[in-house]
Design a protein around this nucleic acid. Structure first.
Length: 210
DNA sequence: TACCGA
DNA sequence: CTCGGT
């Protein structure tokens, strides 16, 4: 494996775990057993390294969002897959990391915002349109408006954790509630019925697992 | 590894 | 003093 890739991999791992500012260039080089000089042969500065890691991370995320269309049987199923992607990508984001990006790495933060406003938004908008064509989602829904609302809703509750009592709910629980509320405003009776088939099937498979 | 400067 | 950068 290329030295550059090792740097990106290790730095990304450390920064995801401990936050960006708490991981120093010394930490990264020590962990890899290389000199700082070597890192600076591949990256102009720390900002450059952070941007590279962010871009790579978002690239992987993007391909996950773009895979839902092929993997899904219908729009209701795809909506479930997209929400899984959403939850996964939330799980990967440590609040520490997002704050550091927002405050000290504005370029990388912009990448995140673009990702949110492009990839995630497009996925949701597209699945809503598909669902309307298939008769599972209500025609009265404006796909563009409602997908923006959904996106902002998800994001607001990540960024602003003091919106809900943290001792009472986990972020995952909050997001599940929001998802449930969202889909039930979206479904036609046929969509609702199909959705329940998926969720009860999921419960059964969980029972066999445990 | 030592060192400088923010 | 800490940490990015030389």
């Amino acid at each position: 494996m290329e030295v550059r890739d090792k740097i990106v991999e290790k730095a990304g791992e450390l920064m995801l775990m401990y936050g960006i500012r708490t991981v120093t260039m010394d930490d990264i080089s020590r962990d890899l057993g290389i000199s700082k000089k070597t890192i600076y042969q591949y990256f102009k500065d720390k900002k450059d390294l952070v941007n590279t890691i962010t871009a790579l991370h978002l690239d992987i995320e993007k391909s996950r969002f773009e895979s839902t269309e092929l993997r899904s049987e219908n729009s209701v199923h795809e909506l479930i897959l997209i929400s899984q992607c959403l939850r996964e990508s939330i799980k990967d984001m440590r609040m520490n990391v997002l704050n550091d990006l927002q405050k000290f790495y504005p370029e990388a933060w912009k990448m995140f915002e673009n990702f949110k406003r492009n990839t995630m938004l497009c996925s949701i908008t597209r699945v809503i349109i598909k669902g309307q064509e298939e008769g599972y989602f209500r025609k009265e829904i404006d796909p563009h408006l409602i997908s923006i609302m959904r996106m902002e809703q998800v994001h607001t509750f990540i960024i602003n954790q003091n919106l809900y009592p943290k001792e009472k709910y986990t972020l995952a629980e909050v997001q599940m509630q929001l998802f449930d509320h969202f889909v039930h405003g979206l479904f036609t009776p046929a969509g609702y019925q199909l959705f329940n088939q998926y969720t009860t099937a999921k419960l059964k498979s969980n029972e066999t697992l445990s």
